[in-house]
Amino acid sequence: MNPFMDREKALLELERRIAELRTASADQPVDMSSEIGVLETKYQEILRDVYGAPTPWQKVHMARHPNRPTSLEYIAGLDRFDELHGDRHYEDDQAVVGGAALLRGRAIVAIGQQRGRDTKENLRRNFGMVAPEGYRKVRRLAHLATRLGLPIVTFVDTKGADPGISSEEHAQSEAIAQCLIAFTTATVPIVASIIGEGGSGGALALAIADRVIMLEHSTYSVASPEGCAAILWGDASKADEAASHLKLTAQDLRGFGIVDEIVPEPLGGANRDPSGVVTRVLEKIDAALERLETLPAQRLLAQRYEKYRRIGAWARETAPAGRF
């Protein structure tokens, strides 16, 4: 259940009435500015009330909002993009889009998971759930980037890797495992942006990076809240409870050092100002690349190794002896 549904309806209704009054007042001599003012105050109140301090479960829904900018919107914000297709083996998975591109004049390889806005597009994009063919395309593009010396820029937006029959038959585990290797060993800078939902290994396959940027209301977790609830309690409907346990918000993850920086969103979420959000994220990516490209490859790799080596290495105390 979308916890925003009722309130979103109320907001849309207010938006509609404000627009109506504006149109009407333009045509008529009557001054309606006070009525409009009242409605706008009300509108802002509801906005703050609903979105001011979203719970983790509310953030999951903001991250999944159909009008939240997707990878293609970020890609459209690049100076130029030439899509490259296919895994060179079997298929061109449409759940992930990638190619050569220019960002502020800098040549890069851009890769992003792509979900749809409507049913038709979602069927084509498989709801942004990438199959092994897609991960093999990603790996190929990462190798291409290394070969040509192009930094890798990724946009992460997936519930998780595709869990279907053919994905298992085509070795989903191996495809992701090899993506992880490709990103770990790429001798070019990598910047990953978590723009929507970052679900599990299927997200991490595009997110091993020198710099990880995350939108204020995006989520990134070890499993989707539904998946986590099903695994732990055999009940996917307890997803809201799982969301509160998982520490999946940008603020939590920045605190853990798993995410490097947070890009703020307008009140109500990125869907309220898509182009502004896209611009701000691209600026952050550009700034990160500016810093990273001065590092020699060996330094870059060593730094990347240390970054991931440290996570969880704090867990050293004397263990209770095994009973055997």
Binding site: L180, T184, S221, V222, K247, G312
Partner: peptide, 11 residues
């Protein structure tokens, strides 16, 4: 262990 667990794949 949430994301700390996922990060062990990277490590």
């Amino acid at each position: 262990e949430g994301m700390f667990a996922l990060m062990q794949l990277a490590k």
